[in-house]
Design a protein around this nucleic acid. Sequence first.
DNA 1: GGCACCTGCAAAACTTCCGTTGCAGGTGCC
DNA 2: GGCACCTGCAACGGAAGTTTTGCAGGTGCC
Lengths: 116, 116
Amino acid sequence: MKSSELTGDELVQVLSTLSNPHRIRIIAALMDGREYVSRLARRLEISRALLQVHLRKLEAAGLVEATLELSPEGKAMKYYTICQFAIELTPQALAAAAPTLSYEEARLRDDPQEQG
Amino acid sequence: MKSSELTGDELVQVLSTLSNPHRIRIIAALMDGREYVSRLARRLEISRALLQVHLRKLEAAGLVEATLELSPEGKAMKYYTICQFAIELTPQALAAAAPTLSYEEARLRDDPQEQG
DNA sequence: GGCACCTGCAAAACTTCCGTTGCAGGTGCC
DNA sequence: GGCACCTGCAACGGAAGTTTTGCAGGTGCC
């Protein structure tokens, strides 16, 4: 995933998702390889409920991926993996994304003549 | 400013600052060159009070810079400029920033033996 | 003086985010 | 049955972010 492929709204979502210490630590922890929820919670020393909330956000933003698997003993395990992404954060990239913000689109709809 | 030069905490601040449609539009508008507050507010069609709040955040994160100048007529004008920045947002970059989160540092202080 | 412009800020209302708590379901094993 | 694991989620209270409203100061010009 590259920043140039994102709409303004998606970029906002990704940035707000990554602007949280817990979620940065989660990404860092998943760099070692896939992990299931309960074990990840123990490694990060946070509650499982809290971790699930953050994982849901990361998944909604397309930054991690989940696969539900059955362990050899038959237990359901949810494994999370990082989705590779490379987002370039420069004034130029932001300017390119700005026109595709739904905010901006709504404004232009109301005032079509001021485009350009 | 490069992402590799930022601490985890600074990165969080930059990301949360940029995860807002208004502030992305402000950066985009300042790409055309420096601008003073009231005129920028008219261009963006938002209230001056609201713009000031967002400009303060952008300045606190080191993304824009302000200079107070006197116009030829003697009016005080506050001009804002973009600070060039290039932040690389990848899992690797986040993993590099994670150990410098104050959150993480506090955790390691409490439990020194689990480092590594 | 009155108007048009420039600046600043803080209180209040509203919305969203965060983290905990407590509950539900399931499996295998002793 | 009881215990140790795995999963899920919703509700609540408190913290933080967002936006409006209203006020203050200043300049120059008619």
